[in-house]
């Protein structure tokens, strides 16, 4: 989960004055190794421009200083670790960066099951009309409203269910992208007229979820409660829920794991109502703001 992590230290591969350039093979391998462990790297060369680094919390500077490691200070007082990697292997250089992190947790691509895959909706603001259908649809509080202008905002990206692109299907404007999806236009590829037409023809999944699917779920859940309690079978309960949600899964390409993780029908109902309330409030606030702007 990303909420508990701190930004990793920023790595600077310094090949400017006072530092000899790295061997090109070593440079390629070092860059790949650092990036694949989650570290951003800036390469500095003579004549290269600098930009303001307001956001970095700490720096690790790597160079071939020939033993004369320079004394570097950050004007803002942030920690700067400087290392001579002239005699180091790629693994040793990477270890110096890891050491500078001092065990602070970070999301990283190479952590196996502990890795959070960055999967969340991204809005094409040039297409979005702020109709708030996505906000009404999402049960996991991913969407919110920007306080300044009451426009749609992806508030809690980490709440999104990995590999589930369902909300992209409810957007009438094809404005919702998942950059790590495998196909266009959901991955961000240009939107064609045919895509727009297809989206408008789609089943209204919000209605499906709030309507017959939910009703069926509730009805079957009540019916099944006594039966399942007698059978004591969690598998049977799961199978029942799956059968019930197949229509929704097929319509919106929702992965099985996401359906299995859905809350109880009562909780779904509560969250749907809450999301709808938020969406309606946002639409009202926008209308109000737009009306005020027109009057003035």
């Amino acid at each position: 989960m990303i909420a508990a992590t701190v930004p990793p230290p920023r790595v600077v591969l310094y090949e400017g004055a006072g530092s000899a350039p790295l061997d090109p093979d070593v440079r390629t391998r070092l860059l790949a190794a650092l990036l694949d462990r989650g570290y951003a790297v800036t390469r500095a060369v003579p004549g290269g421009a600098r930009r303001e680094e307001a956001s970095a919390a700490a720096f690790v500077v790597l160079g071939r200083f020939g033993g004369a490691v320079p004394d570097v200070h950050d004007a803002a007082g942030r920690t700067v670790h400087v290392h001579d990697i002239g005699m180091s292997t790629v693994d040793e250089a990477v270890a110096l960066v890891e050491e500078a992190r001092a065990g602070r947790p970070m999301n990283r691509p190479d952590a196996g099951a502990a890795t959070w895959k960055p999967w969340f909706p991204v809005i094409d603001t040039a297409r979005c009309t702020n109709c708030m259908q996505c906000l009404s649809f999402c049960l996991f509080d991913v969407y919110g409203v920007a306080p300044a202008d009451h426009t749609l905002r992806v508030e809690n990206p980490a709440n999104c269910k990995v590999n589930c692109p369902a909300c992209s299907r409810v957007c009438p404007e094809v404005a919702i992208m998942f950059p790590k999806y495998h196909a266009g236009p959901i991955d961000g590829a240009p939107v064609s007229e045919a895509d727009v037409h297809r989206e408008k023809m789609k089943v209204d999944i919000s209605a499906l979820l709030g309507g017959d699917i939910l009703a069926k779920l509730r009805e079957r859940s009540a019916e099944a409660k006594s039966r399942f309690s007698k059978e004591r079978s969690a598998d049977a309960a799961l199978a029942e829920r799956r059968r019930c949600l197949t229509k929704l899964a097929d319509a919106a390409a929702i992965p099985r794991e996401v359906l299995d993780a859905l809350p109880t029908p009562e909780e779904i109902e509560r969250r749907t109502a809450e999301a709808a309330r938020k969406a309606a409030a946002a639409r009202d606030a926008r209308e109000h703001a737009t009306g005020r702007a027109v009057q003035s």
């Binding site: 992590t5 691509p109 980490a158």
Partner: peptide, 12 residues
């Protein structure tokens, strides 16, 4: 300048 993953950085 190289970054591991713009998506992950945007989420944070």
């Amino acid at each position: 300048e190289m970054v591991p993953d713009l998506c992950e950085m945007a989420a944070r």
